[in-house]
Amino acid sequence: MFEARLASSATFKKVLDAIKDLLNEASFDCSDAGIQLQAMDNSHVSLVSLNLKSDGFEKYRCDRNLTMGMNLASLSKVFRCSGSDDTVTIKAQDDADTVTFMFEAKKQEKISDYEMKLMNLDQEHLGIPETEFSCIIKLPSGEFARIVRDLSQFGESIVISCTKEGVKFSTQGDIGTGNVKLAQTNNFDKEDQSVIIDMQEPVSLTFSCEYLNSFTKATPLSNQVTLSLCDNVPLVVEYQIPDLGHLKYYLAPKIEE
C-alpha cells in the first residue's frame, strides 16, 4: 500500500508544470525515503531529477517500493481538477495498475477523486557522478527566467561565463548580440534576492536556449535557483522546493565541432 498526503496540491501542480515540457511520461519511484523521478527528455540532451522527501508530506506510507509510470499530460488533466487550496492524497495498492488522487477542500466541503491508469515504462536510471564544480551561482529564479527569455529572442544558445567579478550571459544571432552581466550582491540579509558566486576557477560554457527556457518553468517553485558549472560536465540548474525537496535539471553543454 502506498499513500502520500500533501498539504498543497498546488505545489505538486507546479512540479508537474516544471517537467511536462521536457517529459511526455515518467516513472515516479516511491520508497520509504519519498518520491523520486529521474528521466531524460526525448532527445537525451537533458535530465530531470526530482526528489520529494517523505517527511515533507503530511502523511506518508510506503509498505513496498513502487514504481508508477505516468503519462504527464494525463496527470496534468487530473491536477487541473484540483482547487488551489486543496490537499491531495495519492494512493496505490501494491502491484496496482492504477493510482488514485483525492483532492480535499480545506473545510472538507468538497472531496473529489480521480483514478488514473499507470503505464509500464522502460525507464533507465543513470548514475550521476559527484562533481567538484568550478562555479556555483545562486541568483533569484525570476531574474534567471528573465535573462533566458530576453536572450532567447536573439540566438539559439547562451554562453554562461563566470569569473570572480560576476556572471555573464551572452548570445548572438542574425540580428546581433546580447549580453547580461550580474555582479555579486552584498545583500546577505535577503539571500533569495542576492547573486552569490562561489568560484574555484573561471568557466565559460554554451547551452541551448530552448532547454534553459524549459527549466525556468520551475520558477514558481522557488525564489532562488542555483547554477553549477564545470568544464566537460552538464550544467545543473537546481530549484529547492521549500520543506519538500528539490528539482534538478542537467543539461549537456554544446561543444565546438
Binding site: 540532451v45 543513470l126 549537456a252 554544446k254 561543444i255 565546438e256
Partner: peptide, 14 residues
C-alpha cells in the same frame, strides 16, 4: 559549429 552532446555522453546507465 557547436554540436549538442547528449546526457549519455556524461552519465552512464546504472
Amino acid at each position: 559549429v557547436r554540436h549538442q552532446k547528449t546526457i549519455k555522453d556524461y552519465f552512464k546507465t546504472k
